[in-house]
Amino acid sequence: MEKIKVIHYINQFFAQIGGEEEAGHPVEFFPGEVKGPGMAFNQAFGDEAEIIGTVVCGDGFFNENIDDTTEKILAWVEEQKPDLFIAGPAFNAGRYGVACGTMAAAVQEKLGIPAVTGMYVENPGADMFKDKVYIASTKNSAAGMRDAVKVMAPLGLKLARGEEIGASCQDGYIPQGIRVNFFEEERGSKRAVKMLLAKLAGKPYTTEYPMPAFDRVDPQPAVKDMAHATIALVTSGGIVPKGNPDAIESSNASHYGEYDITGVNDLTSDEYETAHGGYDPTYANEDADRVLPVDVLRDMEKEGKIGKLYDKFYTTVGNGTAVASAKAFAEEIGAKLKADGVDAVILTST
């Protein structure tokens, strides 16, 4: 039997071109080449399939040129006529997740070629694409590569062969909101009692009917009188006073910073920098106003366009940071700002 042909998409990091400083690396296609995690996939495929080419793109480049890059890659893939497209896995890398999800969905939808990718469930790309393509559920870092390949390779082969895909709990993908019927070995009453006993004993158990989480917040009313409003700045871009006095982590931040900017008219490279480890820091370190626009808001304060720029700014690093942490930080920040009479917030993200 002929081997299943696979095209693999990876970012600049997994292609070993470089880290954040290479995030702007333009998209490239390497026919006949197997790179990075592609080796592990080839091994897992055995004689059944092989990677016939690798697409490499910087995560920043992809996200800043989504439409053009997608078109370009689609053209390459179409020419190669693979039986399967694999993207990533992206783990908890947000921009990589968006790139993998975009490409997997586009290849499947536009070219009719089955596609699979892999992500950590909190990757924003997972929510965006889980109902469009199969996304293997992975750990949150590349340490989970071996496990990810173990799920993605067989899932991909099944898709390429047109075999039936089982339920998410059987084939290891992130639930798509589609019910798949199968026979459980134990009857319902027995499973329910087991779950109840586990719950009473404080042991872990898995519900069979998770409640959907529709977490939306109604928009607050608009600011009526901007000329007298107090505006606060918040960022997930990691801007901190030089030296990062509160040691906010460059990824998976455990806390946020609160810094006084009374009398500060401009964030200079002598006084401010970024602690963020998930984007090229060159530009933010040169001029932190590029992430946190203190200079412009001071001008507008002087001109009377806004009432006041709030005396403090709040900052954390939104790089692989757990949703639960970000939520907890912002609850505190929101309560403080509200109590201090702030009228509205500009929140900047990188």
Partner: peptide, 20 residues
Amino acid sequence: MVKEIERAGLPVVHDCTVTP
């Protein structure tokens, strides 16, 4: 973060590049 601050009762504008 945007959501939690808005939930606290303040309008928030999110300035970001990857709008999706």
